[in-house]
Amino acid sequence: MTATLTAPTQVKKPGKPKQNREAILLFLPALLPVLILSVYPLIRGIALGFTDARAGLHVETNFVGFDNFSKLLHNNLFWDSFRIGVIWTLSVTILQFVAALGLALLLNTDIKFRGVARTLALIPWAMPPVVVAIMWRLLLHPTNGPVNEILQNLHLTDHPINFLGNFSTALPAVIVVGIWVGMPMTTVTLLAGLQGIDRTLYEAAAVDGAGAWSQFWNITLPQLRTVIVAITSLDMIWNFNSFGLVYVLTAGGPGGKTMLPMLFAYNEAFRYGNFGMAAAMGDVMVVIIILFLFFYLRNRLRSEA
């Protein structure tokens, strides 16, 4: 892209109208499907939140203003699921980041087994979320799962724990799986960032007598800042909007303890048929994400300036 910006041909004025026409021609095959199946549904989806739309073919739909939102305000189940969604998003994103940064730092040294670790770190990314969920259900199975077996052998517990079925352990267990799935993308991105840091910075710091810790704190982290902000923002969005993994792991149970907002809205729309209400929930989610990103990015960017 830098080439495009600096290329002298771009500056020439006379070429422009023709270029624009050519560009539009090249866009044409994508335009129609994107408008019909992406742009229009997005706008329609936002608008649906202000209607009483229901599933079914010949149901009348009325504009109801902020009715859905005032109902949501008093819907404790929705706010519960929202709270769970925030806990899930923040825990997974933060722990994922810490774990991935540790792994990326290790992979950036001359340590052995780097190749193996790198390959293993990529596999979770390639697996279908449904398969990941099935795999962890096998691992955490109360009677013949290995995790319980190991815990009992180490005498950490005297009875098998039903991790995904207990009120107190379900959410933490699901968070661990979330970290496992999301680590690869974060690790790869951070590793690429690490490899882009100028080595002479470290050499200069070493000459000045800076230890490993101070080098990490004063060189690595500031140099990585842009990459960190970008990947944590993306992780946050992805985690907040995630669905398939938890749907197969627990389906929101036990007793709604892992009912992420996406699962809640899905049930509202496709189990109970309340399209309008589900869209209103989606609207609230969008507003929250945008507000969150706004404050997060604003603070990050300000501290950078």
Binding site: S38, P41, R44, L48, A53, M262, A269, G282
Partner: peptide, 25 residues
């Protein structure tokens, strides 16, 4: 286009899937 790429990442799919379902049906 770049704006659309960004927006399509941020929006929860639940908002899109309902209208999609209503268009495709």
């Amino acid at each position: 286009t770049n704006g659309w790429i960004l927006v399509s990442q941020v929006f929860p799919v639940i908002l899109i899937v309902i209208p999609l379902f209503m268009i495709l049906r």
